[in-house]
């Protein structure tokens, strides 16, 4: 009999093909770190073999489908991730995250002296210079965003 490290879920979302080591950051995006927001089990697999290439992380969230805003943020830190919506043990929907051309209002600029970190009525905005690995450049101060995961809003 095949041995499962983590059993299949009945309903919920499987986030697959997360870049190795990024699973914990994905948990932050889906609100795991705000206590009380998550009511159902969440399982995390880190550093498991990937059929596509090398190693990957996987996150399984039960009884919950992600909203598009969360998916957009996952794209910024795990550009190869796929989202599998599970209904009654079957994959009801499957799609890859998509990195947009511009990222608006999803991350703050890592330059503390950037005008967007003052109380100005603008959302931080970045041009995507490379999708994988993700490289974002602030359209205001022209600096490259360091540590995307740590600057997500």
């Amino acid at each position: 009999m095949k041995e499962f490290k983590v059993t299949p879920i009945r309903n919920g979302t499987v986030i697959d093909h997360i870049d190795c080591g990024m699973a914990l950051k994905v948990l932050r995006i889906i609100g795991m770190t705000d206590g009380g927001k998550v009511q159902s089990p969440v399982s995390v697999l880190m550093h498991v073999p990937s059929k596509k290439e090398g190693w990957k992380d996987v996150v399984k969230v039960e009884d919950r489908e992600l909203d598009p805003k969360e998916v957009d943020k996952i794209a910024l830190i795990a550009p190869k991730a796929t989202i599998n919506i599970i209904r009654d043990f079957n994959v009801a929907e499957k799609y890859s995250v998509r990195m947009p051309e511009r990222v608006v209002g999803k991350a703050r600029c890592s330059n503390p002296n950037c005008i967007t970190n003052q109380s100005e009525p603008v959302e931080p905005e970045f041009v995507v210079e490379s999708k994988d690995p993700p490289v974002l450049r602030c359209v205001y101060c022209d600096r490259q965003l360091d540590d995307i995961a740590g600057n997500l809003l």
């Binding site: 600029c109 330059n111 002296n113 950037c114 005008i115 603008v122 205001y140 101060c141």
Partner: peptide, 13 residues
């Protein structure tokens, strides 16, 4: 002229 980076781009917007 402004002490913060990106101020001119913001002004232009």
């Amino acid at each position: 002229r402004h002490p913060r980076e990106g101020a001119a781009r913001l002004a232009a917007r």
